[in-house]
């Protein structure tokens, strides 16, 4: 038997209420074991308070070759940043 276990991506939420963050991946036969293994490998020093695992094959990623067309539209929209607007000092903090 011994077929290779599927690959899972591991996401951990740290102590301070931030988003779950991708920390790495591992092989496991099912989701439950993937969480157990993630606990053993990725939270050995109090790194997290919550673990998500998702099968790598379930992830859809943007194509690296489309990086240009995909992200270019936002490049020209500098007015989306607050620093685009000059607020006079007299107005105070805004």
């Amino acid at each position: 038997m011994s077929s290779e276990w599927p690959l899972w991506e591991v996401f951990i939420r740290g102590q301070h209420g931030l988003n779950h963050r991708h920390v790495g991946s591992l092989h496991a036969p099912d989701a439950e074991m993937a969480v157990n293994n993630a606990r053993d490998v990725y939270t050995r020093r109090n790194e997290g308070v919550s673990i998500w695992v998702v099968k790598s094959s379930e992830i859809t990623a943007s194509a690296p070759s489309e990086k240009g067309p995909l992200f270019e539209p936002s490049n020209s929209k500098v007015y989306r940043h607050p620093t685009f607007f000059d607020i006079p000092d007299e107005v105070g903090h805004m």
């Binding site: 038997m1 011994s2 077929s3 276990w5 036969p29 099912d30 074991m33």
Partner: peptide, 16 residues
Amino acid sequence: GAWFRDGLTAHAQKTA
């Protein structure tokens, strides 16, 4: 460890 890995795989397949 093969018997153990196989057991886990069988369990995963059965549950699925």
